[in-house]
Amino acid sequence: MAHHVEPAEQVDLAPLREVLASQFRPRDSQEAYELIVGACQEAQRLYGWVPPEAAQAIADHLGVTINRIYGLLTFYADFRTEPPGKHFLWLCHGAACYVMGSSRLIEVLRERYGLEDHGVSPDRELTLHVFNGCLGVCDLAPVIQVDHHTYWGRLTPDRLTAAIDALKRGDPVEETDGPAG
């Protein structure tokens, strides 16, 4: 997928610096190394991805090289080194969700919305992360976590497209929670 970088939007590093100063205070170099992943997670929480400026700020703060930071950012599946779209879809592809049909959801997202794993849709509305582990809400399988807080559970391809269309319009999508029991 082609790199799509936001046109020269300045990243405000102040909130990250504040978090680093208050919560990431290593007493020795060992602890500095231990804190890298946590600091990157904070940056991703703040910006939705880890911009190069943030990675450099973390490297400077912890006294480690930028190479070390990118070594980790590119190793772990959770991190993004490119900006995400407006909405974040975290699709559980654990065994429970697979058995209940998550592969069909991945297909729909690819064919209808042009979404690949870790990719952004062409209209920059949606980001997809396919999670290989288990989100642990197996009673709702197959399930997608949306924007880090809501869950769309017991999805079918039809319900998924209805939910995404509602999400894009800004409408509530509660009715897709699926039947109980």
């Binding site: 190394y33 992943v37 990157c40 997670q41 070594g71 980790l72």
Partner: peptide, 26 residues
């Protein structure tokens, strides 16, 4: 101390987990 992982299955393996804690690729 509590340390968190970044979404790599391999980090559940003992030695990989320790490298992950040490801020290296797991």
């Amino acid at each position: 101390r509590v340390r968190t992982g970044g979404g790599a299955y391999i980090c559940g393996e003992g030695s990989a987990l320790m490298y992950a804690i040490m801020g290296q690729r797991g």
